[in-house]
Measured scan of single mutants.
Amino acid sequence: LVRYRTISKIPQITLNFVDLKGDPFLASPTSDREIIAPKIKERTHNVTEKVTQVLSLGADVLPEYKLQAPRIHRWTILHYSPFKAVWDWLILLLVIYTAVFTPYSAAFLLKETEEGPPATECGYACQPLAVVDLIVDIMFIVDILINFRTTYVNANEEVVSHPGRIAVHYFKGWFLIDMVAAIPFDLLIFGSGSEELIGLLKTARLLRLVRVARKLDRYSEYGAAVLFLLMCTFALIAHWLACIWYAIGNMEQPHMDSRIGWLHNLGDQIGKPYNSSGLGGPSIKDKYVTALYFTFSSLTSVGFGNVSPNTNSEKIFSICVMLIGSLMYASIFGNVSAIIQRLYSGTARYHTQMLRVREFIRFHQIPNPLRQRLEEYFQHAWSYTNGIDMNAVLKGFPECLQADICLHLNRSLLQHCKPFRGATKGCLRALAMKFKTTHAPPGDTLVHAGDLLTALYFISRGSIEILRGDVVVAILGKNDIFGEPLNLYARPGKSNGDVRALTYCDLHKIHR
Protein backbone atom coordinates (compact mmCIF):
# COMPACT_ATOMS: atom_id res chain seq x y z
CA LEU A 1 0.00 0.00 0.00
CA VAL A 2 2.86 2.37 0.84
CA ARG A 3 4.48 1.58 -2.49
CA TYR A 4 1.23 2.17 -4.36
CA ARG A 5 0.59 5.52 -2.68
CA THR A 6 4.16 6.56 -3.29
CA ILE A 7 3.92 5.80 -7.01
CA SER A 8 0.48 7.39 -7.23
CA LYS A 9 2.07 10.70 -6.29
CA ILE A 10 4.18 10.77 -9.46
CA PRO A 11 1.59 12.54 -11.68
CA GLN A 12 1.12 15.24 -9.04
CA ILE A 13 4.84 15.82 -8.83
CA THR A 14 5.19 15.92 -12.60
CA LEU A 15 2.54 18.62 -13.12
CA ASN A 16 2.79 20.64 -9.90
CA PHE A 17 6.46 20.15 -9.00
CA VAL A 18 5.63 19.16 -5.33
CA ASP A 19 8.50 17.94 -3.15
CA LEU A 20 7.98 14.57 -1.50
CA LYS A 21 9.59 15.69 1.75
CA GLY A 22 6.58 17.72 2.78
CA ASP A 23 4.24 14.73 2.92
CA PRO A 24 4.26 13.23 6.45
CA PHE A 25 2.83 9.97 5.21
CA LEU A 26 5.61 9.43 2.70
CA ALA A 27 8.25 10.09 5.37
CA SER A 28 7.66 6.73 7.09
CA PRO A 29 10.94 4.89 7.43
CA THR A 30 10.37 1.92 5.13
CA SER A 31 12.93 0.30 2.94
CA ASP A 32 10.65 0.44 -0.10
CA ARG A 33 10.23 4.17 0.25
CA GLU A 34 13.96 4.72 0.53
CA ILE A 35 14.52 2.79 -2.68
CA ILE A 36 11.72 4.44 -4.68
CA ALA A 37 12.14 8.05 -3.50
CA PRO A 38 15.51 8.71 -5.23
CA LYS A 39 14.10 7.32 -8.50
CA ILE A 40 11.06 9.57 -8.17
CA LYS A 41 13.26 12.62 -7.62
CA GLU A 42 15.39 11.73 -10.63
CA ARG A 43 12.36 11.27 -12.87
CA THR A 44 10.85 14.48 -11.54
CA HIS A 45 14.02 16.35 -12.38
CA ASN A 46 14.12 14.92 -15.91
CA VAL A 47 10.46 15.72 -16.54
CA THR A 48 11.00 19.25 -15.23
CA GLU A 49 13.85 19.78 -17.67
CA LYS A 50 11.78 18.47 -20.59
CA VAL A 51 8.80 20.68 -19.71
CA THR A 52 11.12 23.69 -19.41
CA GLN A 53 12.63 22.96 -22.83
CA VAL A 54 9.22 22.65 -24.45
CA LEU A 55 7.97 25.86 -22.87
CA SER A 56 11.12 27.72 -23.96
CA LEU A 57 10.74 26.39 -27.54
CA GLY A 58 14.43 25.58 -27.64
CA ALA A 59 15.96 24.09 -30.78
CA ASP A 60 17.28 21.15 -28.80
CA VAL A 61 13.74 19.83 -28.28
CA LEU A 62 13.73 18.42 -31.83
CA PRO A 63 15.58 15.21 -32.58
CA GLU A 64 19.06 15.68 -33.95
CA TYR A 65 18.31 14.13 -37.32
CA LYS A 66 15.48 16.64 -37.92
CA LEU A 67 17.79 19.57 -37.25
CA GLN A 68 20.22 18.53 -39.95
CA ALA A 69 19.83 20.21 -43.34
CA PRO A 70 19.37 17.89 -46.32
CA ARG A 71 22.82 17.01 -47.55
CA ILE A 72 23.54 17.88 -51.17
CA HIS A 73 26.70 16.35 -52.54
CA ARG A 74 29.30 18.60 -54.07
CA TRP A 75 28.88 19.48 -57.74
CA THR A 76 25.30 18.22 -57.69
CA ILE A 77 22.89 20.27 -59.82
CA LEU A 78 19.26 20.62 -58.82
CA HIS A 79 16.92 19.75 -61.67
CA TYR A 80 14.83 22.88 -60.98
CA SER A 81 17.76 25.30 -60.67
CA PRO A 82 18.02 28.34 -63.02
CA PHE A 83 21.30 27.01 -64.42
CA LYS A 84 19.66 23.73 -65.47
CA ALA A 85 16.76 25.59 -67.08
CA VAL A 86 19.12 27.79 -69.14
CA TRP A 87 21.25 24.78 -70.05
CA ASP A 88 18.20 22.80 -71.25
CA TRP A 89 17.15 25.66 -73.52
CA LEU A 90 20.69 25.86 -74.93
CA ILE A 91 20.68 22.12 -75.65
CA LEU A 92 17.25 22.52 -77.24
CA LEU A 93 18.61 25.15 -79.65
CA LEU A 94 21.55 22.90 -80.52
CA VAL A 95 19.19 19.98 -81.18
CA ILE A 96 17.11 22.17 -83.50
CA TYR A 97 20.30 23.17 -85.32
CA THR A 98 21.23 19.50 -85.59
CA ALA A 99 17.80 18.54 -86.90
CA VAL A 100 18.08 21.11 -89.70
CA PHE A 101 21.74 21.07 -90.76
CA THR A 102 22.73 17.44 -90.18
CA PRO A 103 20.40 15.97 -92.86
CA TYR A 104 21.34 18.83 -95.18
CA SER A 105 25.05 18.12 -94.78
CA ALA A 106 24.58 14.37 -95.10
CA ALA A 107 22.62 14.72 -98.34
CA PHE A 108 24.38 17.56 -100.12
CA LEU A 109 27.88 16.28 -99.26
CA LEU A 110 27.01 12.82 -100.53
CA LYS A 111 29.32 12.47 -103.58
CA GLU A 112 29.05 16.19 -104.14
CA THR A 113 31.30 17.31 -106.99
CA GLU A 114 30.95 21.04 -106.77
CA GLU A 115 33.80 23.12 -108.06
CA GLY A 116 36.51 23.93 -105.56
CA PRO A 117 39.17 22.00 -103.66
CA PRO A 118 38.16 18.96 -101.65
CA ALA A 119 37.59 19.39 -97.94
CA THR A 120 40.63 17.25 -97.10
CA GLU A 121 42.94 19.65 -98.94
CA CYS A 122 41.55 22.71 -97.22
CA GLY A 123 41.88 21.28 -93.76
CA TYR A 124 39.44 20.72 -90.93
CA ALA A 125 39.75 24.11 -89.32
CA CYS A 126 38.83 26.08 -92.44
CA GLN A 127 35.33 24.55 -92.70
CA PRO A 128 32.89 26.72 -90.69
CA LEU A 129 30.18 24.07 -90.67
CA ALA A 130 32.62 21.45 -89.42
CA VAL A 131 33.77 23.75 -86.63
CA VAL A 132 30.17 24.31 -85.55
CA ASP A 133 29.56 20.56 -85.61
CA LEU A 134 32.60 20.05 -83.38
CA ILE A 135 31.24 22.59 -80.90
CA VAL A 136 27.87 20.82 -80.93
CA ASP A 137 29.56 17.48 -80.21
CA ILE A 138 31.46 18.99 -77.29
CA MET A 139 28.27 20.52 -75.86
CA PHE A 140 26.46 17.19 -76.11
CA ILE A 141 29.31 15.46 -74.25
CA VAL A 142 29.20 18.13 -71.54
CA ASP A 143 25.44 17.60 -71.32
CA ILE A 144 26.02 13.91 -70.57
CA LEU A 145 28.37 14.84 -67.73
CA ILE A 146 25.81 17.32 -66.37
CA ASN A 147 23.08 14.67 -66.48
CA PHE A 148 25.26 12.46 -64.28
CA ARG A 149 25.16 15.19 -61.61
CA THR A 150 21.55 16.36 -61.95
CA THR A 151 18.96 15.39 -59.36
CA TYR A 152 15.70 13.70 -60.30
CA VAL A 153 12.34 12.89 -58.74
CA ASN A 154 11.73 9.20 -58.05
CA ALA A 155 8.45 7.29 -58.00
CA ASN A 156 7.80 8.38 -54.41
CA GLU A 157 8.08 12.05 -55.48
CA GLU A 158 11.34 12.43 -53.57
CA VAL A 159 14.29 14.43 -54.89
CA VAL A 160 17.27 12.08 -55.27
CA SER A 161 20.68 13.77 -54.94
CA HIS A 162 22.97 10.79 -54.32
CA PRO A 163 25.50 10.56 -57.21
CA GLY A 164 25.37 6.77 -57.39
CA ARG A 165 21.60 6.62 -57.64
CA ILE A 166 21.60 9.45 -60.18
CA ALA A 167 24.11 7.56 -62.34
CA VAL A 168 22.10 4.31 -62.19
CA HIS A 169 18.90 6.17 -63.08
CA TYR A 170 20.59 7.88 -66.03
CA PHE A 171 22.13 4.61 -67.27
CA LYS A 172 18.68 3.00 -67.26
CA GLY A 173 17.15 5.97 -69.05
CA TRP A 174 18.54 8.24 -71.74
CA PHE A 175 22.27 7.53 -71.47
CA LEU A 176 22.51 5.21 -74.51
CA ILE A 177 20.64 7.61 -76.79
CA ASP A 178 22.63 10.62 -75.58
CA MET A 179 25.90 8.73 -75.95
CA VAL A 180 25.25 7.65 -79.54
CA ALA A 181 24.10 11.17 -80.45
CA ALA A 182 27.26 12.70 -78.93
CA ILE A 183 29.88 10.52 -80.67
CA PRO A 184 32.18 12.90 -82.65
CA PHE A 185 32.34 11.00 -85.93
CA ASP A 186 34.13 13.95 -87.54
CA LEU A 187 37.15 13.38 -85.31
CA LEU A 188 37.05 9.59 -85.44
CA ILE A 189 36.98 9.30 -89.25
CA PHE A 190 38.53 12.67 -90.17
CA GLY A 191 41.13 12.50 -92.93
CA SER A 192 39.97 9.15 -94.28
CA GLY A 193 38.22 10.68 -97.28
CA SER A 194 34.85 9.18 -96.29
CA GLU A 195 32.79 12.35 -96.12
CA GLU A 196 29.72 10.39 -97.22
CA LEU A 197 30.10 7.97 -94.32
CA ILE A 198 30.63 10.82 -91.85
CA GLY A 199 27.47 12.52 -93.09
CA LEU A 200 25.42 9.37 -92.66
CA LEU A 201 26.77 8.60 -89.19
CA LYS A 202 26.12 12.15 -88.01
CA THR A 203 22.40 11.58 -88.52
CA ALA A 204 22.54 9.66 -85.22
CA ARG A 205 22.29 13.07 -83.56
CA LEU A 206 18.63 13.11 -84.53
CA LEU A 207 18.00 10.61 -81.72
CA ARG A 208 18.00 13.55 -79.32
CA LEU A 209 14.76 14.72 -80.90
CA VAL A 210 12.98 12.03 -78.87
CA ARG A 211 13.92 13.79 -75.62
CA VAL A 212 12.99 17.17 -77.08
CA ALA A 213 9.56 15.88 -78.07
CA ARG A 214 8.93 14.69 -74.50
CA LYS A 215 10.01 18.02 -73.03
CA LEU A 216 7.84 19.99 -75.44
CA ASP A 217 4.84 17.85 -74.47
CA ARG A 218 4.32 20.13 -71.44
CA TYR A 219 3.13 22.87 -73.83
CA SER A 220 0.34 20.69 -75.25
CA GLU A 221 -2.25 22.54 -73.17
CA TYR A 222 -1.63 25.80 -75.07
CA GLY A 223 -3.49 25.79 -78.36
CA ALA A 224 -1.32 28.39 -80.11
CA ALA A 225 1.88 26.60 -79.04
CA VAL A 226 0.57 23.25 -80.28
CA LEU A 227 -0.38 24.78 -83.63
CA PHE A 228 3.08 26.32 -83.99
CA LEU A 229 4.80 23.05 -83.06
CA LEU A 230 2.70 21.10 -85.56
CA MET A 231 3.61 23.48 -88.36
CA CYS A 232 7.29 23.28 -87.40
CA THR A 233 7.08 19.48 -87.40
CA PHE A 234 5.51 19.50 -90.85
CA ALA A 235 8.23 21.82 -92.19
CA LEU A 236 11.00 19.73 -90.59
CA ILE A 237 9.70 16.48 -92.10
CA ALA A 238 9.45 18.18 -95.49
CA HIS A 239 13.06 19.34 -95.08
CA TRP A 240 14.24 15.79 -94.30
CA LEU A 241 12.36 14.35 -97.27
CA ALA A 242 13.83 17.05 -99.53
CA CYS A 243 17.33 16.00 -98.48
CA ILE A 244 16.51 12.35 -99.24
CA TRP A 245 14.97 13.33 -102.59
CA TYR A 246 18.12 15.18 -103.57
CA ALA A 247 20.36 12.32 -102.38
CA ILE A 248 18.46 9.85 -104.60
CA GLY A 249 18.84 12.03 -107.67
CA ASN A 250 22.48 12.80 -106.91
CA MET A 251 23.40 9.11 -106.54
CA GLU A 252 21.63 8.08 -109.76
CA GLN A 253 22.82 10.99 -111.88
CA PRO A 254 26.35 9.71 -112.75
CA HIS A 255 25.18 6.15 -113.53
CA MET A 256 22.25 6.85 -115.86
CA ASP A 257 22.68 6.43 -119.61
CA SER A 258 19.61 8.53 -120.41
CA ARG A 259 19.03 11.97 -119.00
CA ILE A 260 15.66 11.33 -117.35
CA GLY A 261 16.40 12.05 -113.69
CA TRP A 262 14.82 15.03 -111.97
CA LEU A 263 18.20 16.75 -111.65
CA HIS A 264 18.75 16.51 -115.41
CA ASN A 265 15.27 17.88 -116.07
CA LEU A 266 15.92 20.72 -113.62
CA GLY A 267 19.21 21.59 -115.32
CA ASP A 268 17.53 21.68 -118.74
CA GLN A 269 14.64 23.84 -117.44
CA ILE A 270 16.82 26.55 -115.87
CA GLY A 271 19.53 26.48 -118.58
CA LYS A 272 22.26 24.82 -116.48
CA PRO A 273 22.51 21.31 -117.95
CA TYR A 274 25.01 18.67 -116.89
CA ASN A 275 27.87 18.03 -119.33
CA SER A 276 28.95 14.63 -120.55
CA SER A 277 31.31 14.12 -117.60
CA GLY A 278 28.55 14.79 -115.05
CA LEU A 279 29.88 18.18 -113.99
CA GLY A 280 28.03 21.49 -114.09
CA GLY A 281 24.33 21.50 -113.53
CA PRO A 282 22.20 23.62 -111.17
CA SER A 283 23.59 25.23 -108.05
CA ILE A 284 23.03 23.78 -104.59
CA LYS A 285 20.51 26.52 -103.88
CA ASP A 286 18.47 25.61 -106.96
CA LYS A 287 18.60 21.93 -106.07
CA TYR A 288 17.52 22.42 -102.47
CA VAL A 289 14.69 24.84 -103.24
CA THR A 290 13.35 22.55 -105.97
CA ALA A 291 13.58 19.47 -103.74
CA LEU A 292 11.79 21.28 -100.92
CA TYR A 293 9.13 22.48 -103.37
CA PHE A 294 8.55 18.89 -104.53
CA THR A 295 8.21 17.47 -101.01
CA PHE A 296 5.82 20.21 -99.88
CA SER A 297 3.63 19.77 -102.96
CA SER A 298 3.62 15.99 -102.50
CA LEU A 299 2.88 16.11 -98.76
CA THR A 300 0.00 18.52 -99.29
CA SER A 301 -1.36 16.40 -102.21
CA VAL A 302 -1.06 19.32 -104.63
CA GLY A 303 1.49 17.95 -107.11
CA PHE A 304 1.69 20.50 -109.93
CA GLY A 305 3.80 18.12 -112.04
CA ASN A 306 6.59 20.50 -113.03
CA VAL A 307 8.93 18.40 -110.84
CA SER A 308 8.06 14.76 -111.39
CA PRO A 309 9.68 11.39 -110.61
CA ASN A 310 10.93 9.51 -113.65
CA THR A 311 13.21 6.71 -112.45
CA ASN A 312 12.04 3.73 -110.42
CA SER A 313 13.81 4.94 -107.30
CA GLU A 314 12.21 8.35 -107.57
CA LYS A 315 8.77 6.82 -108.09
CA ILE A 316 9.13 4.53 -105.07
CA PHE A 317 10.22 7.46 -102.95
CA SER A 318 7.27 9.52 -104.22
CA ILE A 319 4.88 6.76 -103.16
CA CYS A 320 6.40 6.81 -99.67
CA VAL A 321 6.07 10.59 -99.53
CA MET A 322 2.39 10.35 -100.46
CA LEU A 323 1.80 7.81 -97.69
CA ILE A 324 3.60 10.03 -95.19
CA GLY A 325 1.58 12.99 -96.40
CA SER A 326 -1.71 11.18 -95.83
CA LEU A 327 -0.64 10.22 -92.30
CA MET A 328 0.43 13.78 -91.58
CA TYR A 329 -2.92 15.06 -92.79
CA ALA A 330 -4.66 12.71 -90.39
CA SER A 331 -2.40 13.40 -87.40
CA ILE A 332 -1.52 17.09 -87.83
CA PHE A 333 -3.96 18.96 -89.99
CA GLY A 334 -6.84 16.94 -88.62
CA ASN A 335 -6.16 18.56 -85.24
CA VAL A 336 -5.91 22.10 -86.57
CA SER A 337 -9.68 22.62 -86.54
CA ALA A 338 -9.87 21.34 -82.96
CA ILE A 339 -7.01 23.63 -81.90
CA ILE A 340 -8.57 26.66 -83.54
CA GLN A 341 -11.90 25.79 -81.94
CA ARG A 342 -10.17 25.61 -78.56
CA LEU A 343 -8.56 29.00 -79.18
CA TYR A 344 -11.99 30.52 -79.72
CA SER A 345 -13.75 28.50 -77.04
CA GLY A 346 -14.05 31.60 -74.83
CA THR A 347 -15.88 33.51 -77.57
CA ALA A 348 -18.16 30.54 -78.18
CA ARG A 349 -19.01 30.32 -74.46
CA TYR A 350 -19.74 34.04 -74.39
CA HIS A 351 -22.20 33.81 -77.27
CA THR A 352 -23.83 30.74 -75.71
CA GLN A 353 -24.33 32.49 -72.38
CA MET A 354 -25.57 35.68 -74.05
CA LEU A 355 -28.06 33.62 -76.05
CA ARG A 356 -29.36 32.09 -72.81
CA VAL A 357 -29.73 35.54 -71.25
CA ARG A 358 -31.69 36.81 -74.24
CA GLU A 359 -33.90 33.73 -74.24
CA PHE A 360 -34.58 34.35 -70.53
CA ILE A 361 -35.49 37.98 -71.30
CA ARG A 362 -37.77 36.93 -74.13
CA PHE A 363 -39.48 34.15 -72.18
CA HIS A 364 -40.19 36.28 -69.09
CA GLN A 365 -40.94 39.43 -71.12
CA ILE A 366 -38.49 41.63 -69.24
CA PRO A 367 -39.21 45.32 -70.00
CA ASN A 368 -36.71 47.33 -72.00
CA PRO A 369 -34.88 49.36 -69.26
CA LEU A 370 -34.41 46.28 -67.09
CA ARG A 371 -33.38 44.20 -70.09
CA GLN A 372 -30.70 46.70 -71.02
CA ARG A 373 -29.34 46.70 -67.48
CA LEU A 374 -29.26 42.90 -67.48
CA GLU A 375 -27.32 42.72 -70.74
CA GLU A 376 -24.88 45.45 -69.71
CA TYR A 377 -24.17 43.71 -66.42
CA PHE A 378 -23.53 40.41 -68.19
CA GLN A 379 -21.16 42.02 -70.69
CA HIS A 380 -19.23 43.86 -67.97
CA ALA A 381 -19.02 40.80 -65.71
CA TRP A 382 -17.80 38.67 -68.61
CA SER A 383 -15.09 41.18 -69.55
CA TYR A 384 -13.93 41.14 -65.92
CA THR A 385 -13.98 37.36 -65.33
CA ASN A 386 -13.89 35.97 -68.90
CA GLY A 387 -16.70 33.65 -67.88
CA ILE A 388 -14.64 31.90 -65.19
CA ASP A 389 -16.38 31.24 -61.89
CA MET A 390 -13.65 31.81 -59.32
CA ASN A 391 -15.54 30.08 -56.53
CA ALA A 392 -16.06 26.96 -58.62
CA VAL A 393 -12.38 26.86 -59.57
CA LEU A 394 -11.11 27.37 -56.01
CA LYS A 395 -13.47 24.79 -54.56
CA GLY A 396 -11.19 21.95 -55.66
CA PHE A 397 -8.11 23.31 -53.84
CA PRO A 398 -7.18 23.09 -50.14
CA GLU A 399 -8.09 26.00 -47.90
CA CYS A 400 -4.50 27.13 -47.37
CA LEU A 401 -4.04 27.45 -51.13
CA GLN A 402 -7.43 29.14 -51.48
CA ALA A 403 -6.33 31.74 -48.93
CA ASP A 404 -3.11 32.43 -50.82
CA ILE A 405 -4.97 32.81 -54.12
CA CYS A 406 -7.60 35.10 -52.58
CA LEU A 407 -4.84 37.16 -50.99
CA HIS A 408 -3.20 37.54 -54.41
CA LEU A 409 -6.44 38.42 -56.19
CA ASN A 410 -7.32 41.11 -53.62
CA ARG A 411 -3.76 42.36 -53.06
CA SER A 412 -4.39 45.80 -54.58
CA LEU A 413 -7.34 46.52 -52.28
CA LEU A 414 -5.61 45.16 -49.19
CA GLN A 415 -2.46 47.20 -49.85
CA HIS A 416 -4.03 50.57 -50.62
CA CYS A 417 -7.22 50.62 -48.55
CA LYS A 418 -6.62 52.44 -45.24
CA PRO A 419 -8.56 50.09 -42.89
CA PHE A 420 -6.22 47.22 -43.78
CA ARG A 421 -2.98 49.04 -43.07
CA GLY A 422 -1.10 47.48 -40.20
CA ALA A 423 -3.11 44.27 -40.28
CA THR A 424 -1.20 41.02 -39.93
CA LYS A 425 -0.86 38.65 -42.84
CA GLY A 426 -3.06 36.10 -41.09
CA CYS A 427 -5.80 38.69 -40.70
CA LEU A 428 -5.53 39.65 -44.38
CA ARG A 429 -5.70 36.01 -45.44
CA ALA A 430 -8.86 35.50 -43.39
CA LEU A 431 -10.47 38.65 -44.80
CA ALA A 432 -9.52 37.75 -48.37
CA MET A 433 -11.40 34.47 -48.01
CA LYS A 434 -14.57 36.37 -47.02
CA PHE A 435 -14.57 38.80 -49.94
CA LYS A 436 -17.28 38.47 -52.57
CA THR A 437 -16.85 40.37 -55.82
CA THR A 438 -19.72 42.15 -57.53
CA HIS A 439 -19.93 44.36 -60.60
CA ALA A 440 -22.18 47.25 -61.55
CA PRO A 441 -22.64 49.10 -64.87
CA PRO A 442 -23.28 52.88 -64.94
CA GLY A 443 -26.69 53.85 -63.60
CA ASP A 444 -27.22 50.63 -61.69
CA THR A 445 -28.56 51.07 -58.14
CA LEU A 446 -26.57 48.96 -55.72
CA VAL A 447 -28.54 49.77 -52.55
CA HIS A 448 -32.01 51.31 -52.30
CA ALA A 449 -33.18 53.47 -49.43
CA GLY A 450 -34.72 51.29 -46.73
CA ASP A 451 -32.87 48.11 -47.76
CA LEU A 452 -31.34 45.98 -45.04
CA LEU A 453 -27.58 46.46 -44.89
CA THR A 454 -26.00 43.05 -44.48
CA ALA A 455 -22.58 43.77 -46.00
CA LEU A 456 -19.70 46.21 -45.99
CA TYR A 457 -18.61 47.34 -49.48
CA PHE A 458 -15.08 48.21 -50.66
CA ILE A 459 -14.76 49.98 -54.02
CA SER A 460 -12.02 48.41 -56.12
CA ARG A 461 -12.68 50.31 -59.35
CA GLY A 462 -15.04 53.01 -60.52
CA SER A 463 -17.09 55.62 -58.66
CA ILE A 464 -20.54 55.75 -57.06
CA GLU A 465 -22.87 58.41 -55.70
CA ILE A 466 -24.98 58.37 -52.53
CA LEU A 467 -28.35 60.11 -52.78
CA ARG A 468 -31.02 61.08 -50.28
CA GLY A 469 -34.04 61.77 -52.33
CA ASP A 470 -32.69 63.68 -55.33
CA VAL A 471 -29.78 65.26 -53.47
CA VAL A 472 -26.28 63.85 -53.94
CA VAL A 473 -24.80 63.48 -50.49
CA ALA A 474 -21.39 62.06 -51.43
CA ILE A 475 -19.37 60.66 -54.32
CA LEU A 476 -17.08 57.77 -53.52
CA GLY A 477 -14.23 56.33 -55.58
CA LYS A 478 -11.52 53.72 -55.51
CA ASN A 479 -10.59 52.32 -52.06
CA ASP A 480 -13.57 54.04 -50.39
CA ILE A 481 -15.99 52.15 -48.13
CA PHE A 482 -19.74 52.22 -47.58
CA GLY A 483 -22.30 49.98 -45.93
CA GLU A 484 -22.82 48.82 -42.35
CA PRO A 485 -19.98 48.34 -39.85
CA LEU A 486 -19.90 44.60 -39.29
CA ASN A 487 -20.92 43.25 -35.86
CA LEU A 488 -21.24 46.78 -34.47
CA TYR A 489 -24.98 46.30 -33.95
CA ALA A 490 -26.90 43.20 -32.98
CA ARG A 491 -29.38 43.63 -35.83
CA PRO A 492 -28.67 44.78 -39.37
CA GLY A 493 -29.58 48.37 -40.05
CA LYS A 494 -31.43 49.95 -42.94
CA SER A 495 -30.02 52.17 -45.64
CA ASN A 496 -30.84 55.88 -45.34
CA GLY A 497 -30.09 56.58 -49.00
CA ASP A 498 -29.63 55.21 -52.49
CA VAL A 499 -26.24 54.07 -53.82
CA ARG A 500 -25.89 54.36 -57.59
CA ALA A 501 -22.96 53.55 -59.87
CA LEU A 502 -21.61 56.42 -61.96
CA THR A 503 -19.17 54.28 -63.98
CA TYR A 504 -18.42 50.62 -64.38
CA CYS A 505 -17.67 49.53 -60.82
CA ASP A 506 -15.99 46.53 -59.26
CA LEU A 507 -16.75 46.09 -55.57
CA HIS A 508 -15.70 43.67 -52.85
CA LYS A 509 -18.13 43.02 -50.04
CA ILE A 510 -18.04 41.18 -46.72
CA HIS A 511 -21.31 39.87 -45.28
CA ARG A 512 -22.21 39.84 -41.60
Rank of each mutant, 00 (worst) to 15 (best):
A247Y: 13
E375D: 04
V131I: 14
G422T: 09
E375N: 08
L134C: 05
Y344K: 03
S301P: 04
H408S: 01
V168T: 09
A99R: 01
F363S: 03
T300Y: 05
L201R: 01
G325M: 01
M139P: 01
I189A: 14
K395G: 11
I144M: 14
A440C: 13
H264V: 04
A125M: 12
L241T: 04
L92Y: 04
S337M: 06
Y350F: 06
G443W: 01
S277E: 12
V168R: 14
I361R: 02
E375Y: 04
A125N: 04
I198A: 05
I166M: 13
A69E: 12
L134M: 08
F108M: 08
W240N: 03
R373M: 06
L394V: 04
W245S: 01
F108Q: 01
A225D: 01
P184I: 01
I237P: 01
A119Y: 07
A181Y: 01
F360Q: 01
V212F: 09
Q402E: 03
N154R: 09
S337E: 06
L145V: 10
K425D: 13
F378K: 04
M179H: 03
L279F: 14
A181F: 01
R421E: 12
W89L: 01
P184L: 01
E314L: 01
R211A: 01
H416T: 10
G223L: 04
T437W: 11
I91A: 01
G223I: 03
N306C: 03
P184R: 05
Q415C: 06
N410D: 01
M328C: 13
Y350E: 01
L209R: 01
V307N: 03
I248P: 01
L446K: 01
V447C: 06
I244G: 04
G173M: 03
T352M: 11
A338M: 05
Y222H: 04
W245A: 04
F294V: 01
I141F: 11
T290L: 01
L279M: 08
V132P: 01
P369L: 03
G164K: 13
M390H: 04
Y377V: 04
L187V: 13
Y65V: 08
P70R: 05
E359P: 03
I91Y: 01
L206K: 01
D257S: 11
R165V: 07
D143H: 01
C243T: 01
G396S: 15
K436P: 02
A125I: 15
C232N: 01
Y384N: 06
T76V: 07
E252M: 01
S298F: 03
P163A: 13
D286Q: 01
S337R: 06
V393R: 02
N156R: 09
G199Q: 13
S220V: 09
Y170C: 01
G249D: 01
Y377W: 04
A449M: 06
N275P: 01
L236T: 01
H79C: 01
K111H: 15
L394R: 02
V132F: 12
G346T: 13
H264C: 03
H364T: 06
F378P: 06
K215C: 04
S276I: 06
A130K: 15
T290V: 01
Y124P: 04
R211V: 01
Q253K: 10
R362Y: 01
R214E: 06
Y274I: 03
Q269C: 02
L263F: 01
E375C: 05
T438L: 11
Y344M: 13
L343Q: 01
V160K: 01
E157H: 04
T300R: 03
V168A: 09
R358K: 09
Q372I: 06
A440V: 12
E375P: 01
A392D: 13
S277Y: 01
C232H: 01
K287Y: 03
F175M: 05
P184V: 01
I198G: 09
P118R: 15
E375W: 08
Q379L: 06
G164C: 09
L201G: 01
V336Q: 03
P82Y: 15
V160R: 01
T352I: 07
P273V: 01
G164V: 13
G271D: 01
M390N: 06
C406E: 01
F360Y: 03
F397S: 02
Y80S: 08
A242K: 01
A213M: 05
S192C: 11
I405V: 08
F296S: 01
S276R: 04
I361M: 08
A247M: 10
N312V: 03
R71H: 08
R342A: 06
L209C: 05
Q372Y: 13
M231T: 04
I77V: 07
A204C: 06
L401S: 01
E252V: 01
S81T: 07
E221I: 03
L428F: 02
N335H: 12
P82Q: 10
T347K: 03
S308A: 13
E112D: 11
C126W: 01
A238M: 04
V160M: 09
R211W: 01
E314W: 01
Y97V: 01
T385K: 03
I77L: 05
M179L: 13
L134P: 01
T437I: 08
K425F: 04
D286F: 01
Y344R: 04
I138A: 04
R358P: 03
Q402H: 03
A423F: 04
E157T: 11
P273R: 01
V95T: 07
V100A: 01
E112H: 14
W87R: 01
Y97F: 03
W75G: 07
L229R: 01
V159W: 03
F228S: 09
I144S: 01
V159N: 01
C243E: 01
E375V: 10
Q253F: 15
T203F: 04
S297C: 04
Y377T: 12
G334T: 03
L67S: 03
E252R: 01
L431M: 11
C126H: 01
L394P: 02
P254T: 14
N312E: 01
G223T: 09
M433S: 06
E252W: 01
G305C: 11
G334Q: 08
C406M: 08
H239G: 01
I96F: 01
A99E: 01
P282K: 02
I361A: 11
Q341C: 05
L216I: 14
V302Q: 03
G325S: 01
F190W: 13
S194N: 14
V289Y: 01
N265R: 14
F304I: 03
T352S: 10
F304Q: 03
H162K: 10
L292I: 05
A403G: 10
R205T: 04
V307T: 04
L109P: 01
Y219I: 11
I324L: 13
Y274C: 01
V226R: 11
I340V: 10
P103H: 01
H439E: 05
N410C: 08
R211I: 01
L299D: 01
Q68N: 14
A224E: 09
F294E: 01
T76K: 01
F363R: 13
W75R: 04
Q415A: 10
D143A: 01
I388D: 13
G173T: 13
